[in-house]
Design a protein around this nucleic acid. Structure first.
Length: 747
DNA sequence: CTAGGGTTAG
């Protein structure tokens, strides 16, 4: 009998102890361990279940929490409240609302949870309506939830009015308002309020320091930090992170060394600071020294090694990590993904016990980045809960794979789209040459009430550039000006290209002149623009200006300036620039650069030198190079060399009719008619046909597409030359586009 | 031991 009683009380204390363990593990993100304790318990009471529900919910597994809740036979009020809190932490308003309705009993906890849930998700009016229904208004937490909610959304008038009405306001109430100021960067109003507060505690002081840190006012943060009567760990860590964020690592470290009360958070903060500035060895040294490590410490160090590209080191730590959380494993997957090691990423992914949306998205992005769209789609459709990032990733993936039909399908299936979704679609259209669709999407985006950002504008302008649609481009320019993006560097760079490609080189130059801080792309855009418009000397001059302004030219710069030289026959200058690219700027020439120089030599009649260059190339010659050579051979009547070039060219592009034409013309010019016949015969056999050219033209603010595959309408060069023909052709294709009216309406 | 209101590290 006595023994039996002792056994029962031992069991009780055991259950009590295990429950405590579950709750602590749950709170510190060690969910796997909590689950282990829970499943191994032979005796479970209501508190056990309640603790496990909270543990699940705090770690994002709200569905498992609900599952457990549904399985319970002895639910008490805390069970209901725990579930409600779970929905609150996972931003599930409607589920919370449902549960709240079904509750058999409610206490002040329940009401506060529901109100907080509405507040967090921005449903201020519903929160207020519920608060007004609240039968017992003596509980302060409810008031504070209302005040905090209003303040966080910058509704200071409502917050303060509630504060005035509130019976028994306390420090939390004051701090709730202060939080509204500090978390919204309102530090002037914040300091004012802080001075007016009847009492302050460490939370108030720390809020001020954090607020100044957030807006980058380190001096003020430091001032307040020094005024704190008895700073605690939070104060020290906040200040430490402030210095770390702006790269003042030495000062951060000094704080770390000086702080009188150091806990695991301080260590983690300092390690994160080193990781952030890529000082991985310092971070690792601290990691080894620290007295104990939690999942944050491990995740930070693993992430650090991933960021500096030391994947094997990261992997070593991951393998050593006692209980691997989602964050650490996702960091590792991210590292593998960035280095195209998808098989290793996949292994970790499939071994993971729990996965979150971020983890899935990382894997999907990995597959899309290396063009493995089937595998990406596989994961995407297996995903139970997708967020907007998942959808956007798929759109980008299909677009890059050239499958715009599928990208569009995904886009249309989305329940809600953000600016990124639209930009992904529009970028995709531009990348795949579907410029009309890009511009149409631009308009549709505005009609759906989404504001285009700098990326949208730069894409839209790029579409205009490729269509040579000057009027539409100008409209976009005006629009960008209206919404305040015309001074953005992305937009300005796109404007330069647009004007240049439309033949308005002076407008391009004007945009260039208006830019305060030009980057390499800016210079490249105008140089390429000059090249395109046959202004070779200006291109070279601009290049020299760029170098004297200490902007380092890149591969693209040289493609522009070399093209410019070849267009206007600046042979010596071009050759000189090519040398300078390799020897002064240490840029390894790409096939494109060779193509320019070879074209340059070929046009100048230095065909032998051109061939010499091809032989000396480190990269494989592409069709463009051989075709430039072939042109040169035809122009300067070098049939023997031309034969070599044409052979290579036909090897690379057997179906391209222009190659055959070029060869046959060359033979015809030097009177080798038998060869001409041979080639024409070959063309008939192989079915190589002249490809339909497609072009765009703009008349009176409208862009028209026409395809020059109708022999009746095509002139010798494949471009319609008379207005009569043009009109007929427009009727044929029936495409037209006017952006102006729609765009201006939609914004 | 489990649930609500104001601050810190990943």
């Amino acid at each position: 009998m006595k023994q039996g009683l002792r056994k029962v009380s031992e069991q009780r204390s055991n259950v009590f102890y295990q429950n405590l363990k579950i709750s602590r593990l749950g709170k510190s993100g060690r969910l796997e361990e909590a689950i282990k304790v829970f499943t191994l318990m032979d005796q479970k009471n209501t508190v056990t279940y309640n603790s496990m529900i909270s543990a699940y919910a705090k770690n994002g597994r709200i569905n498992d929490a609900r599952h457990l809740f549904d399985q319970m036979t002895n639910r008490n009020l805390v069970s209901w409240n725990s579930m409600l809190a779970g929905y609150l932490h996972n931003d599930k308003v409607e589920e919370a609302h449902d549960l709240f309705d079904k509750m058999p009993k409610r206490d002040p906890f329940s009401w506060t949870l529901m109100i907080s849930c509405y507040m967090r998700t921005g449903k201020l009016d519903r929160a207020r309506a519920l608060f007004d229904l609240l039968p017992d208004k003596t509980d302060t937490a409810c008031w504070n939830a209302m005040i905090a909610g209003y303040a966080k959304k910058c509704r200071f008038a409502e917050a303060k009015s509630l504060l005035n009405e509130m019976p028994g306001k306390n420090l939390v109430s004051w701090n709730s308002i202060l939080t509204g100021y500090t978390q919204n960067g309102e530090m002037v109003l914040g300091s004012q309020f802080f001075e007016e507060m009847p009492e302050r505690d460490l939370v108030s002081w720390n809020l001020m320091v954090a607020g100044f840190v957030d807006v980058g006012a380190l001096d003020s943060a430091w001032e307040y930090f020094q005024r704190i009567p008895n700073p605690n760990v939070v104060s020290w860590v906040t200040m430490l992170c402030g210095f770390a964020r702006i790269g003042r690592l030495v000062e951060a470290r000094r704080l770390f060394d000086e702080m009188p009360c150091r806990n695991i958070v301080s260590w983690n903060a300092m390690i994160a600071a080193y990781v952030q500035s890529l000082q991985i060895d310092e971070a690792a040294s601290l990691f080894m020294q620290m007295p104990e490590r939690d999942s944050v410490s491990w995740t930070t160090i693993i992430n650090g090694y991933v960021r500096v590209g030391k994947l094997d080191k990261a992997r070593k730590y991951l393998d050593e990590m006692p209980y691997k959380n989602i964050g650490a494993q996702t960091a590792m997957i991210c590292g593998y993904v960035q280095n195209n090691r998808m098989e290793e990423a996949s292994k970790i992914f499939h071994r993971m016990g729990t996965r979150d949306i971020v983890c899935w998205n990382t894997m999907i992005a990995g597959y899309t980045q290396c063009g493995r769209m089937n595998e990406a789609a596989n994961l995407f459709y297996k995903m139970v809960e997708k967020d907007i990032v998942s959808w956007n990733t798929m759109i980008v993936g299909y677009a890059q794979a050239g499958q715009m039909d599928k990208a569009l399908k995904i886009f249309k299936e989305m329940s809600e789209r953000n600016v990124v979704s639209w930009n992904s679609l529009i970028t995709g259209f531009v990348q795949n040459g579907l410029y009309f669709d890009a511009l149409k999407s631009f308009v549709l985006m505005g009609q759906e009430g989404k504001k285009p950002d700098q990326l949208t504008f730069s894409c839209g302008l790029s579409a205009c550039a490729n269509l040579a649609a000057l009027q539409v481009g100008k409209q976009l320019h005006h629009l960008a000006f209206k919404v305040g993006y015309s001074n953005n560097l992305f937009v300005s760079n796109a404007l330069i290209t647009m004007y240049a490609k439309c033949g308005r080189i002076l407008d391009a130059k004007a945009v260039f002149k208006g830019i305060d801080l030009a980057d390499v792309v800016t210079w490249n855009s105008l140089i390429a623009g000059y090249a395109l418009n046959g202004c070779g000397k200006e291109a070279v001059k601009l290049f020299e200006e760029m170098v004297s302004e200490r902007v380092s030219p890149d591969e693209v710069t040289f493609i522009g300036v070399l093209t410019a030289c070849s267009h206007v026959g600046l042979v010596e200058q071009g050759l000189e620039l090519f040398k300078c690219m390799v020897h002064v700027h240490n840029i390894e020439p790409l096939a494109e650069h060779y193509a320019c120089v070879i074209d340059l030599l070929g046009r100048a009649g230095r065909v032998d030198e051109a061939f010499e260059m091809v032989r000396g190339m480190k990269v494989k010659a592409h069709a463009g190079i051989w075709s430039a050579l072939l042109w040169a051979c035809q122009l300067h009547q070098k049939p023997e060399l031309g034969e070599i070039a044409s052979e290579k060219l036909l090897e690379l592009q057997p179906d391209r009719s222009s190659n055959h034409v070029l060869l046959s013309n060359m033979h015809a010019e030097v009177g080798r008619w038998d060869d001409v016949e041979k080639i024409r015969g070959f063309m008939k056999e192989s079915g190589a046909q002249k490809q339909p050219g497609c072009s765009w033209i703009e008349i009176q603010n409208e862009v028209h597409a026409f395809v020059s595959n109708d022999p009746m309408l095509r002139t010798t060069d494949g471009i319609c030359s008379t207005s009569k023909t043009l009109t007929a052709q427009i009727k044929n294709t029936g495409q037209k586009f006017d952006i102006q009216a729609q765009l201006l309406e939609s914004l």
